[in-house]
Design a protein around this nucleic acid. Structure first.
Length: 131
RNA sequence: GCGGAGGGGCGGAUGACCGCGGCAGCAAUGUCGAGGAAAGUCCGGACUCCCAAAAGAUACGGUGCCGGGUAACGCCCGGGCGGGGUAACUCGACGGACAGCGCCACAGAAAACAAACCACCGACCUUAGGGUCGGCCAGGGUGAAACGGUGGGGUAAGAGCCCACCGGGGGGCUGGCAACAGCACCCGCAUGGCAAGCCCCACCGGGAGCAAUGCCAAAUAGGGACCGCGUGGGCCGCAAGGCCCGGGGCUGCUUUUGCCCCAGCAGGUCCGGGUUGGCAGCUAGAGGGGUGUUGGUAACAGCAUCUCAAGAGGAAUGGUCAUCUCGGGGCGGUUCGCCGUCCUAGACAGAAUCCGGCUUACAGCCCCUCCGCGCAC
RNA sequence: GGCCCCGUGGCUCAACUGGAUAGAGCAGCCCCCUCCUAAGGGGCAGGUUGUAGGUUCAAGUCCUACCGGGGCCG
């Protein structure tokens, strides 16, 4: 069995002080960015929906998180978004593409309950298909 | 031991690694970081604007036994009255229906003025069916509700017509701040129900809401509509201007005070268009909690002392793991007390200007007080 | 975060100042008409009036609390 801590040392290096040339993460907040991403391509996985859209030639990855009321009450929505933030933080700097906007959408029931390392694999596979 | 009633509290803990938001700092780093309901937005306030302050009246809305608490309340405490319960206790929109208006379907003789109708009793008339006069009260399948109820006396038949008890009304006395209760007396005693229908009475309330509001910057347009609107008088002064009188305007209305305007081409409001930046409001306040003490039956208030307290601006408290603990479940053993082992943190739920309440949701656990029954002594 | 509005058959709407069995159209099912279908005609069923309490003799209507939808603001 793979220990869940296994990917952590690699990421820990990238998290504390990002080396020069490494991909930086920014959080999407504006409504217009979400709307642009919603019109772009998407990959559906069991745990979430990934929307992606090429933005410019910079080395910055931008990512947004959203959950509709279908996911549940405020506690359930916040929990789903927190888990999506965590997998994005661990996976995107390694596997994401520069200059892209990503939006992760939570799904009812599964986003909050799916095992964490399975969610990590989901995102890695989704990113490999989103080219 | 069984069953029940009331009240209060907790809402996992510790550690490791990697992260998130605020603040301080050049940085390293340090420090703080969700709830009892943060919820529903149902009441009450603080605060800001409309709009300058106050008073009054009207309209509209709310509250509604009495007294107290409170910044205030529709909340809380205590008491009264009326239901429920053997009891502990609990529930109650609980002012007024002789101020007025309105409604009471169907059924029924009649639904609010009490009379009419049927029936009953007596007298008279009539061959009979019945009719006339008097008694006018009891009875009349109904209905949610029928002009006091039950029993006795009385009568031609009956009726508070008379009597006893119950019920009702009236003024009085006593107790109580009051709601109200008690006592004796008087009145034979029509004056339904609905005020969560209009309404009357008492008290309270101006409206909107932090996406309120104020400031700075950028950008676009440099547009449109509407309002003040009244071409005042006199005196002083070279003039600028000042003083007095008058007129007009400023909260839906009125009044008082205050402010502004009376020829300046300026001012104000709204729309359209643009920006989707920053700062303030923004968290220390009627603050919460603990302990002690004083007053009070209590709610609560005063004093002393200690302690705690996020302020984001689409929204931060997370992810993973380990150990422990409370419950729950499975299996095995059992002296039925429990023991061993494995699995499992597991309810409702996330601050958005801030407080006081109410209501609603909630796995499981803990504590206190009281009542009834049974057993033992 | 704040403010406001609305819930009646599957759908769209009615129901006077509380009053008797909650009506109408479309849709559905059955029958007639037609060679068949549509249209037309006849009949039928379908409702906890969002939920739970309360006021009243009586509630879709009045009151209270919840539940579910929808709209507005800077």
């Amino acid at each position: 069995m793979i220990p869940p801590e296994a990917p952590l040392p690699n990421d820990a290096v990238g998290q504390g002080t990002p080396p020069a040339g490494h991909l930086r993460l920014e959080i999407l907040k504006a409504r217009a960015d979400f709307l642009r991403a919603a019109r772009a391509k998407r990959v559906v996985t069991p745990g979430f929906v990934l929307q992606y859209r090429p933005r410019d030639e910079g080395d910055v990855i931008r990512v947004g998180f959203t959950c509709s009321k279908k996911v549940g009450n405020a506690v359930a929505r916040n929990r789903a978004k927190r888990r999506l933030r965590e997998i994005a933080r661990l996976v995107l700097p390694e596997h994401g593409s520069a200059g892209m906007d990503y939006v992760l959408i939570g799904r009812a029931e599964v986003t909050a309950n799916r095992p964490f390392d399975v969610m990590l694999d989901d995102l890695r596979q989704a990113l490999s298909r989103a080219t």
